[in-house]
């Protein structure tokens, strides 16, 4: 198991706030469903460059798949969460919840 997806600590790739919100947004979609880049950008209130960079990071980690195609001669980019990404996200959320359940002084 890679360090990013360790159960012992936070997922360092997902923990960054925009990447966390990207993963939460895509995780709410049904399996195999993709969301258009422009829609994702609007939902998250992110800029093109920022969103693109973080999507690339998530894609390189295998958490997200990005599909680029042409529809009616216009480029369309869509992103969706992978099974690996879904597992990593759930694990990260479980870690955060577990952390909150611990006594604050610990």
């Amino acid at each position: 198991m890679d360090a990013a997806a360790s159960t012992d600590g936070p997922d360092e790739i997902i923990h960054q706030s925009l990447r966390l919100r990207i993963m939460a947004t895509l995780n709410a979609l049904p399996p195999n469903e993709l969301m258009e880049f422009t829609r994702l950008r609007a939902v998250l209130g992110a800029t093109d460059g920022n969103l693109g960079a973080h999507l690339t990071t998530l894609e390189n980690a295998g958490y997200v798949r990005v599909e680029k195609e042409f529809v009616a001669r216009k480029p369309r980019t869509r992103a969706g969460i992978t099974a690996r990404g879904r597992t990593a996200f759930m694990r990260h959320v479980a870690y955060l919840r577990e952390l909150l359940d611990r006594p604050a002084a610990e």
């Binding site: 936070p10 919100r21 939460a24 947004t25 995780n27 709410a28 604050a104």
Partner: peptide
């Protein structure tokens, strides 16, 4: 990476809000 209680609470809030908004739009 050290994650504090406050970090964890804020992160969970962000994740919940994003997930709920995504589900609503879906």
């Amino acid at each position: 990476m050290a994650v504090t209680h406050e970090d964890a609470a804020a992160a969970l809030r962000l994740a919940n809000e994003a997930g709920e908004r995504s589900a609503m739009l879906r």
